[in-house]
Protein backbone atom coordinates (compact mmCIF):
# COMPACT_ATOMS: atom_id res chain seq x y z
CA UNK A 1 0.00 0.00 0.00
CA UNK A 2 1.46 3.39 -0.94
CA UNK A 3 1.99 6.04 1.73
CA UNK A 4 -1.11 7.96 2.69
CA UNK A 5 -1.31 11.38 1.11
CA UNK A 6 -3.68 13.62 3.00
CA UNK A 7 -3.97 17.28 2.12
CA UNK A 8 -5.03 19.99 4.54
CA UNK A 9 -8.35 20.23 2.75
CA UNK A 10 -8.93 16.53 3.21
CA UNK A 11 -8.03 16.79 6.88
CA UNK A 12 -10.44 19.71 7.25
CA UNK A 13 -13.19 17.74 5.49
CA UNK A 14 -12.73 14.76 7.80
CA UNK A 15 -12.63 16.88 10.96
CA UNK A 16 -15.77 18.72 9.86
CA UNK A 17 -17.59 15.49 9.16
CA UNK A 18 -16.52 13.75 12.36
CA UNK A 19 -17.37 16.75 14.54
CA UNK A 20 -20.79 17.40 12.99
CA UNK A 21 -21.87 13.75 12.85
CA UNK A 22 -20.59 13.23 16.40
CA UNK A 23 -22.53 16.28 17.57
CA UNK A 24 -25.71 15.02 15.86
CA UNK A 25 -25.39 11.52 17.34
CA UNK A 26 -24.73 12.80 20.86
CA UNK A 27 -27.51 15.38 20.58
CA UNK A 28 -30.03 12.65 19.71
CA UNK A 29 -28.73 10.56 22.60
CA UNK A 30 -29.04 13.54 24.95
CA UNK A 31 -32.64 14.11 23.85
CA UNK A 32 -33.38 10.46 24.65
CA UNK A 33 -31.67 10.63 28.04
CA UNK A 34 -33.45 13.88 28.90
CA UNK A 35 -36.89 12.54 27.98
CA UNK A 36 -36.39 9.17 29.69
CA UNK A 37 -37.49 10.23 33.22
CA UNK A 38 -40.60 11.85 31.71
CA UNK A 39 -41.68 8.67 29.94
CA UNK A 40 -44.99 7.36 31.24
CA UNK A 41 -45.02 3.93 32.87
CA UNK A 42 -47.07 2.65 29.94
CA UNK A 43 -47.18 4.13 26.45
CA UNK A 44 -50.48 5.58 25.16
CA UNK A 45 -51.02 2.84 22.55
CA UNK A 46 -50.73 0.06 25.15
CA UNK A 47 -53.07 1.98 27.49
CA UNK A 48 -55.63 2.29 24.70
CA UNK A 49 -55.20 -1.38 23.77
CA UNK A 50 -55.81 -2.50 27.35
CA UNK A 51 -58.92 -0.36 27.52
CA UNK A 52 -60.35 -1.61 24.20
CA UNK A 53 -59.38 -5.24 24.91
CA UNK A 54 -62.20 -5.33 27.52
CA UNK A 55 -64.59 -5.65 24.57
CA UNK A 56 -63.07 -8.89 23.30
CA UNK A 57 -65.16 -11.40 25.33
CA UNK A 58 -68.37 -9.87 23.98
CA UNK A 59 -67.34 -9.70 20.32
CA UNK A 60 -67.41 -12.49 17.76
CA UNK A 61 -64.02 -13.94 16.79
CA UNK A 62 -64.33 -12.43 13.32
CA UNK A 63 -66.74 -10.31 11.31
CA UNK A 64 -67.63 -6.64 11.30
CA UNK A 65 -68.61 -4.19 14.04
CA UNK A 66 -69.58 -0.53 13.90
CA UNK A 67 -67.99 2.45 15.61
CA UNK A 68 -69.24 5.73 17.07
CA UNK A 69 -67.46 8.43 19.01
CA UNK A 70 -67.87 11.94 20.37
CA UNK A 71 -68.07 13.52 16.90
CA UNK A 72 -70.00 12.37 13.83
CA UNK A 73 -68.29 9.58 11.89
CA UNK A 74 -67.59 11.79 8.85
CA UNK A 75 -65.63 14.25 10.96
CA UNK A 76 -63.08 11.66 12.15
CA UNK A 77 -61.14 11.71 8.88
CA UNK A 78 -61.90 15.33 8.01
CA UNK A 79 -60.18 16.49 11.19
CA UNK A 80 -57.02 14.57 10.31
CA UNK A 81 -56.83 15.89 6.74
CA UNK A 82 -56.73 19.46 7.99
CA UNK A 83 -54.48 18.59 10.95
CA UNK A 84 -57.12 20.14 13.25
CA UNK A 85 -57.65 17.05 15.37
CA UNK A 86 -55.98 13.70 14.82
CA UNK A 87 -57.11 12.37 18.20
CA UNK A 88 -60.44 10.93 17.02
CA UNK A 89 -58.79 9.16 14.09
CA UNK A 90 -56.06 7.78 16.37
CA UNK A 91 -58.71 6.41 18.74
CA UNK A 92 -60.59 4.78 15.87
CA UNK A 93 -57.43 3.29 14.32
CA UNK A 94 -56.22 1.95 17.66
CA UNK A 95 -59.62 0.36 18.23
CA UNK A 96 -59.22 -1.46 14.92
CA UNK A 97 -55.58 -2.25 15.73
CA UNK A 98 -56.62 -3.92 18.99
CA UNK A 99 -59.60 -5.81 17.61
CA UNK A 100 -57.94 -7.37 14.52
CA UNK A 101 -59.07 -9.65 12.81
CA UNK A 102 -62.53 -8.17 13.36
CA UNK A 103 -63.29 -5.31 10.97
CA UNK A 104 -64.26 -2.08 12.72
CA UNK A 105 -66.27 0.06 10.29
CA UNK A 106 -66.45 3.78 10.89
CA UNK A 107 -70.27 3.87 10.85
CA UNK A 108 -73.11 3.04 13.24
CA UNK A 109 -75.31 0.83 11.01
CA UNK A 110 -74.08 -2.60 12.12
CA UNK A 111 -75.63 -5.03 14.63
CA UNK A 112 -72.85 -4.46 17.16
CA UNK A 113 -71.40 -0.99 17.57
CA UNK A 114 -68.49 0.18 19.73
CA UNK A 115 -68.93 3.52 21.47
CA UNK A 116 -65.60 5.20 22.25
CA UNK A 117 -66.38 8.41 24.14
CA UNK A 118 -63.07 9.15 25.80
CA UNK A 119 -63.46 12.83 24.81
CA UNK A 120 -67.06 13.18 25.95
CA UNK A 121 -70.53 12.00 24.94
CA UNK A 122 -71.93 12.30 21.41
CA UNK A 123 -74.42 14.96 20.37
CA UNK A 124 -77.83 14.57 22.08
CA UNK A 125 -80.13 12.25 20.14
CA UNK A 126 -77.33 10.72 18.05
CA UNK A 127 -77.54 7.28 19.67
CA UNK A 128 -81.34 7.18 19.58
CA UNK A 129 -81.37 8.34 15.98
CA UNK A 130 -79.23 5.33 15.04
CA UNK A 131 -81.16 2.88 17.22
CA UNK A 132 -78.20 2.11 19.48
CA UNK A 133 -79.06 0.50 22.79
CA UNK A 134 -76.29 -0.13 25.34
CA UNK A 135 -75.28 -3.77 25.74
CA UNK A 136 -72.53 -3.15 28.26
CA UNK A 137 -70.91 -0.02 29.68
CA UNK A 138 -67.24 -0.69 30.55
CA UNK A 139 -66.73 2.75 32.07
CA UNK A 140 -64.14 5.34 30.97
CA UNK A 141 -66.27 6.17 27.92
CA UNK A 142 -66.28 2.67 26.44
CA UNK A 143 -69.69 1.22 25.63
CA UNK A 144 -70.82 -1.70 23.48
CA UNK A 145 -74.16 -1.11 21.72
CA UNK A 146 -76.63 -3.37 20.04
CA UNK A 147 -78.43 -1.83 17.11
CA UNK A 148 -82.15 -2.25 17.41
CA UNK A 149 -84.18 -2.22 14.23
CA UNK A 150 -86.28 0.91 13.91
CA UNK A 151 -89.98 0.29 14.47
Amino acid sequence: MPPTHTTYRQKASIILLVVLSGYAVLNLLWQGVRSYPELPQTDPVTIHETRIAQLLPLLPASGAVGYVTTVENERIFAGEKTFINVEFLAQYVLTQYTLVPRIVHNRPDLPLVIGNFIDGPPAPGFLEQNGLAPLKDFGDGLVLYRREPKP
Binding site: G22, V25, L28, L29, Q31, G32, S35, Y36, D43, V45
Partner: peptide, 19 residues
Protein backbone atom coordinates in the same frame (compact mmCIF):
# COMPACT_ATOMS: atom_id res chain seq x y z
CA UNK B 1 -18.69 5.40 20.03
CA UNK B 2 -21.29 6.81 17.62
CA UNK B 3 -22.67 3.31 17.03
CA UNK B 4 -23.14 2.64 20.75
CA UNK B 5 -24.75 6.07 21.23
CA UNK B 6 -27.13 5.38 18.32
CA UNK B 7 -28.02 1.96 19.73
CA UNK B 8 -28.95 3.60 23.03
CA UNK B 9 -30.99 6.27 21.15
CA UNK B 10 -32.82 3.48 19.30
CA UNK B 11 -33.63 1.77 22.61
CA UNK B 12 -34.93 5.05 24.09
CA UNK B 13 -37.14 5.52 21.03
CA UNK B 14 -38.47 1.97 21.42
CA UNK B 15 -39.20 2.47 25.12
CA UNK B 16 -41.07 5.67 24.31
CA UNK B 17 -43.18 4.11 21.55
CA UNK B 18 -42.95 0.30 21.60
CA UNK B 19 -45.73 0.02 18.99
Amino acid sequence: VELVASLVSFIFAFLKEPH
